[in-house]
Simulated scan of single mutants.
Amino acid sequence: MRLNLSAFFRFGCVLCQSPLKQGANGLCSTCRRQIPRYTYCGGCGAPLQYAACYCGNCHHNAFTWDKMVIIGRYNDPLSQLIHRFKFQKQFWLDRTLACLLLLELYEARRIYGLTFPQAIIPVPLHHIRQWQRGYNQADLLAKAISRWLEIPCLSHIVRRVKHTPTQRGLTATARRRNLKNAFNVAALTPFPYQRVALVDDVITTGSTLNEIATLLRQLGVQEIQVWGLARV
């Protein structure tokens, strides 16, 4: 007699709870369509009328990465999923959010000519904050995508050595000051990867990414991509 597993494991959409025939991605087609997409700059993530690899905003803002890939703006229902994943200990949403990001990576390869990197690096948490949260959300995302794309995930290359106050609510200047000397890189030289991707959840001013990218540049990394769930 064949077991009917659906009788034991009833998968529901993580947003509307409607039944799913396959629970792998966690979102029904209706809720997936409700996540607003927008055309953005492939360099800084700014909204554009037409897709472009770089925009005028890129020339006025000195960011140290090369390309950016994001799912969308930090609006509902995407922001709701991220908040639950990040602050409500719903770590199992990593697969749903990583799958959405993976689809966007394939879109970026088609639209912006994105070339996948040689390694993936999650933005680290300070060990105190990670202990409080129980996990690093960027690390969970990076490891899922690493498995699917078969690209190494370097979870311990970049370390956050300074326990800074939360960045939420700070100005861009205060964020940069808050992050000064907050990170270091534990890597052998010469660093074996020329193209890497930094994975983060929400990108606001990009101060954290700039700090890490600057350290990676010092190791000789030639191309740095930023992969994020949402842009504020």
Rank of each mutant, 00 (worst) to 15 (best):
R2N: 15
L3I: 09
L3P: 03
L5P: 05
L5K: 01
L5S: 10
R10E: 13
F11A: 13
V14C: 09
S18W: 08
P19G: 04
L20G: 00
K21W: 02
G23M: 08
S29I: 14
R32H: 13
R32C: 10
R33Q: 15
R37K: 15
Y38I: 14
Y38F: 15
C44R: 03
C44I: 04
L48C: 07
A52V: 00
C53W: 04
C55N: 06
N57A: 04
C58V: 02
H59D: 11
H59N: 03
F63H: 13
V69N: 01
I70M: 14
I70E: 09
I71N: 01
R73C: 04
Y74I: 08
Y74F: 15
N75L: 13
P77D: 09
L78D: 07
S79C: 09
F87A: 03
Q88C: 04
K89C: 07
Q90Y: 06
Q90I: 10
Q90K: 14
L93Y: 15
R95A: 14
L97I: 08
L101G: 08
L103Y: 11
Y106T: 00
A108T: 13
I111E: 15
F116L: 15
P122Q: 05
L125P: 05
L125A: 05
H126V: 08
I128K: 13
R129I: 08
Q130M: 14
Q130V: 01
Q130P: 03
W131G: 07
Y135D: 07
L140R: 04
K143P: 03
S146E: 06
W148N: 09
W148I: 10
W148D: 09
I151A: 04
C153R: 03
L154R: 00
V158R: 02
V161K: 12
V161Q: 05
K162C: 11
Q167F: 09
L170H: 03
A172V: 05
R177I: 12
N178W: 07
N181A: 15
F183K: 01
F183W: 06
N184G: 01
N184M: 09
A186S: 06
P190M: 00
P192D: 11
Y193D: 09
Q194D: 13
Q194A: 05
A197G: 08
A197N: 07
L198D: 01
D200I: 12
D200H: 10
D201N: 12
D201H: 10
I203E: 10
T205P: 06
T205V: 04
T208R: 07
I212F: 10
I212L: 09
I212E: 12
A213H: 05
L215D: 00
R217L: 14
L219I: 02
V221Q: 12
Q222D: 12
E223F: 04
V226D: 08
L229W: 09
R231W: 08
R231A: 13
V232S: 14
